[in-house]
């Protein structure tokens, strides 16, 4: 990452790249969409068979995979659409409201 597009919302007409081009690959990584979420998918490791169907269907590349195995959900980018929950054949993913999830997180932290 070398292209500094911080503050781009304030750019004037002469600061925007030609034809509104994006001057770097992979810039979506820096665009955090996790805060759009109202509900989040919860991964139940006990039920997961590692079929990776959720990974195939996720429209936001938010199913984290390591060593060819599902290893969690990228909550920085997951928009909470629930597609992964719908397609999972083993009920290894379920939706929980953000509010409940955060309370749970706080409890665990304490």
């Amino acid at each position: 990452m070398s292209w500094d597009y911080s503050g781009n919302e304030q750019w004037t007409w002469d600061q925007i790249p030609l034809g509104a081009m994006t001057l770097e690959g992979g810039t979506a990584t820096g665009h955090k969409t996790g805060d759009w979420r109202v509900q989040r998918p919860i991964w139940h490791t006990d039920k997961c068979k590692q079929c990776l169907i959720c990974w195939m269907h996720c429209p936001d590349s938010s199913i984290k995979v390591s060593e060819q195995k599902m290893c969690g959900v990228d909550y920085e980018h997951c928009k909470g659409c629930g597609v992964c929950v719908q397609v999972c054949p083993f009920n290894a993913l379920s939706m929980m409201s953000e509010k409940d999830a955060r309370e749970l997180d706080e409890k665990e932290a304490n």
Partner: peptide, 18 residues
């Protein structure tokens, strides 16, 4: 030097400036 052409310019974002 990867780059993208034909970007989406959302409401109030880049369209008038472009």
């Amino acid at each position: 030097n990867p780059n993208s052409f034909g970007m989406f310019a959302n409401l109030g974002n880049f369209y008038m400036e472009t």
